[in-house]
Design a protein around this nucleic acid. Sequence first.
DNA 1: AGTAAATACAACTAGGTAGTAATATAAGAA
DNA 2: TTCTTATATTACTACCTAGTTGTATTTACT
Lengths: 109, 109
Amino acid sequence: MIELSDTNASAIAERFKALGEPMRLLLLEALRRGECSVGELAERTGGGQANVSKHLQVLLQQGYVDRRKEGTTSWYRITDPQVFKMCELVCGGLEEDLDRRRKLLRSRK
Amino acid sequence: MIELSDTNASAIAERFKALGEPMRLLLLEALRRGECSVGELAERTGGGQANVSKHLQVLLQQGYVDRRKEGTTSWYRITDPQVFKMCELVCGGLEEDLDRRRKLLRSRK
DNA sequence: AGTAAATACAACTAGGTAGTAATATAAGAA
DNA sequence: TTCTTATATTACTACCTAGTTGTATTTACT
């Protein structure tokens, strides 16, 4: 296992940061069903073409998605479904956090 | 399980974003051994007091750490060790990504 | 009271980044 | 070739945030 040392912290942070953007999470979710073109992704997420393309570059560079070119079309797909495990973990944390906040509110009444 | 819909994407992204900063990862790593004060954390991570304090607020607000006050000292601790599961997942992805890049380099020779 | 220590907060700066509009590039079709 | 389609890139704006400095707040000690 990689240690969370100074040198690695930046690289790891970069990977987390790539997921720290709503649009990129929506893109990953849209890609969950399978390979998808930029245009389709823009339509599904409601984002602009340029913006979607730029976000896909980030996900590509961080290795979350792969790309396959066919004519003028770029087909993107999830590289490793493990991403969704992370999303589930963070979702679990979210729910626990909400519970915690609810309890705090109750105890303050 | 929470769905990755438009409404949730922002909340989830916020949680990822909180981990997308080297200093905050270093703080979590430092807290791994156990409860720690702000001063100790600043010393261990080499960060300034104000900066460390500010990063801890982010981790606190996102529920990654808890705080306990004692005199003028604030003691911080990990709320849920699941965070490190996420770090391991992202580390695994990092290694796979490096492998992928190495293969690409070799195949391009 | 006065002083020191620990933390939080406010103000500021510099660098980063999301979103958009316009343009560039590339591949087909007419 | 010219037009159209799909994607990537550039330039720009507006906003956000990490880090720093200085200060306020709180507690403990003499």
